[in-house]
Amino acid sequence: METKLTTDINEIKFEIEKLNLYYGSFQALKEIDMTIYGNKITALIGPSGCGKSTFLRTLNRMNDLIQGVTIDGTIQFDEQDIYGTGYDIIELRKKVGMVFQKPNPFPKTIYENVVYGPKIHGEKDRSKLDHIVERTLKEVALWEEVKDRLHKPALGLSGGQQQRLCIARCLAVEPEVILMDEPTSALDPVATSKIEGLLEELAEKYTIVIVTHNMQQAGRVSDFTSFFLNGKVIETDKTEVIFSNPANKKTEDYITGRFG
């Protein structure tokens, strides 16, 4: 951990400046500034309703689905404003994948779930698709468990398996960034530890932003941690700093369990 954190910060993936988000007249995010670095795991923590999930969903423009949401400020992804006119949302979502709180495999087979993305994006070659399935399922350590029943319904898997399948489905599109919205909150401890183990390996290839309720989880897996409160970012720093020596009193109160 120590060495990893002291290596200098290389690539900037997201640069967020003065981001405000409104649901109708309610302001859910206030003046957010943040930098998200490549090939690192950034954890977003804070009490429920603090805006961390909402913020996460601005990064691949999933909030576009919700009516009445308005946004100002800028979010630059690879130095391009993703809310700028003419920016291709489809391309953005190919590069910025998402894993949701509750596993949401489609009611299709395991195989069809994984190849859904590649097929949508025009891949028709059967052997390539087979290869993608094997590669991604191995990446999420699910291959051995499901290789004999790839053509069985995905909904027959356990919750933890379903969530790993969803991660594989996301990887199949070859994203650069993976957004995770409390990916383990619906899972049992064994499944949770499997997914946490996975995160470390994934971070070598991908940039990960993870929202979590679980502070231990944030401490265990992330390189950076950002603390949200009432729609504002109170503090962002290296995880070890946040957990051992936070600059803000509110962060300390939250970390030590005084509220939330």
């Binding site: 979502r93 489609f106 996301c170």
Partner: peptide, 8 residues
Amino acid sequence: EGSLSLGA
């Protein structure tokens, strides 16, 4: 959401 997040 799952489908859209994959770039569909």
